[in-house]
Simulated assay, not measured.
Amino acid sequence: MGFNLIDNTKAFLITGPVGFIGSYLSKKLLDQGCKVIGIDNLNDYYDVNLKQTRLDQLQPYESFTFINGDISDKKTINDLFAEYKPDIVVNMAAQAGVRYSIENPDVYIQSNLIGFYNILEACRHYPVEHLIYASSSSVYGANKKVPFEETDFVDNPVSLYASTKKSNELMAHTYSHLYNIPATGLRFFTVYGPMGRPDMAYFGFTDKYFAGEPIKIFNNGDFENDLYRDFTYIDDIVVGMERLLGNPPEKEDSAPHRVFNIGNNSPEKLMTFIGALEKALSNALGRNVEFNKVYEPIKPGDVPATYASTDLLYQAVGFKPETSIQDGLQKFADWYVDYYQKK
């Protein structure tokens, strides 16, 4: 399978380099001698100390430049592109979270729409070789057909977060068509691992355990029709992204634009995942761990199953995730116990 490897003479702009996926990708590029410019506003949507820890891992690299700024500030973005002239842009900066978008809609419009618009405008005026941007599995909304395929109808989002991500795909296609910007959107499916996002279920469950609190499981206790999630380990995600960076889309139909699912293609029942997390924490602590579970109805904006077909990404760059949930959760549990000094 032929695909171009990373060219470390290129300058990479990563927005959101202190986010979960952005920090891993930045470090992988820096380890290969690439020049990385990162912009992030270190907002307090979740623990800023964790973001600072991720940033501290990147700061020692001489080829890393960090700008504390917001992508929704047009002048900041224009000045950044004018000064650094990035060859490849990876837009990971976004306000994440489905439930949070119901309570705080303003910040989603600011970051996910205005911020992304500013990135597209900058790519128009300072042409780049490839723009990769984060979309989300949430664009599939209440899609009943599984696995989700990129050709599926995605006009029924069930959260504002999903709407902004679908909008990003439309905006990117338009700019790609009008200004010939090679662009790739990635629909991420439940990414997990060490230094992950504290608002994600596996992280929250672990927090609750150590706080002596029960975990809430939104499946009505219905194990036959349990929630399915396509959990994907962070290292696998980064390998897929890394392979895409130097492989921009050709102009097909009306624009050099494409969208890929990036997930595990192997959904797990939520209860299986929780069992694996209990076992991983038991191993990390040297004692038996069992969560106190409370079952509740599914929440607005949540969907029963997310399950990615990753055939297109495999055909493009040979992407195939290799990390089992047992191995991935063990790495998370070991990190968590060490980082938070738990006993």
Rank of each mutant, 00 (worst) to 15 (best):
E296I: 10
P86T: 04
Q32V: 03
A280V: 07
P256A: 06
D311R: 15
G141W: 07
M271D: 04
F153L: 11
G193D: 05
Q326I: 12
I21L: 01
S254C: 04
S111F: 00
G263N: 08
L42Q: 11
N156G: 03
F319W: 07
G263L: 09
S167N: 08
T190Y: 04
G193M: 09
C34Q: 10
R187T: 03
S137T: 07
Q52E: 15
K145I: 15
E268K: 04
Y209R: 10
L312C: 12
Q32C: 10
Y175A: 00
S111I: 08
D7V: 10
Y46H: 12
R197A: 10
Y175K: 05
T190W: 03
V154S: 11
A11S: 12
S111M: 08
A82K: 15
E129A: 08
V239C: 04
I274P: 00
G22H: 11
S26K: 15
E242Q: 06
L29F: 00
E296R: 05
L50W: 09
A162W: 06
S63Q: 14
L329A: 02
G318L: 10
V18N: 04
G318I: 04
P182Y: 02
K279Q: 09
Q330I: 04
L42D: 03
I109S: 08
S101Y: 15
F20L: 06
S23Q: 13
R229C: 05
I181G: 00
L244K: 05
A172I: 02
K251W: 10
A316N: 11
T306S: 15
F66W: 11
E278D: 08
V89P: 00
K145E: 09
K216A: 05
I234L: 06
F12I: 01
I88Q: 02
L160D: 14
F153I: 10
F66S: 01
P267C: 10
E213R: 11
M1A: 15
A255M: 03
A11K: 10
L25M: 14
F189S: 00
I21G: 00
M92C: 13
V317D: 10
S254V: 09
Q32M: 14
I102H: 06
K299D: 07
Q95G: 00
L120F: 13
L245D: 00
I67T: 04
R243Y: 05
N68H: 12
D40H: 13
L186H: 05
R287E: 09
F20K: 14
G19A: 14
S176H: 01
Y100H: 10
K320G: 14
I274R: 05
N49W: 04
T15N: 04
I237R: 02
S135K: 03
P157V: 13
G212V: 09
T65E: 06
Y46M: 14
Y108N: 05
N91S: 15
K208N: 04
V158R: 04
G115K: 01
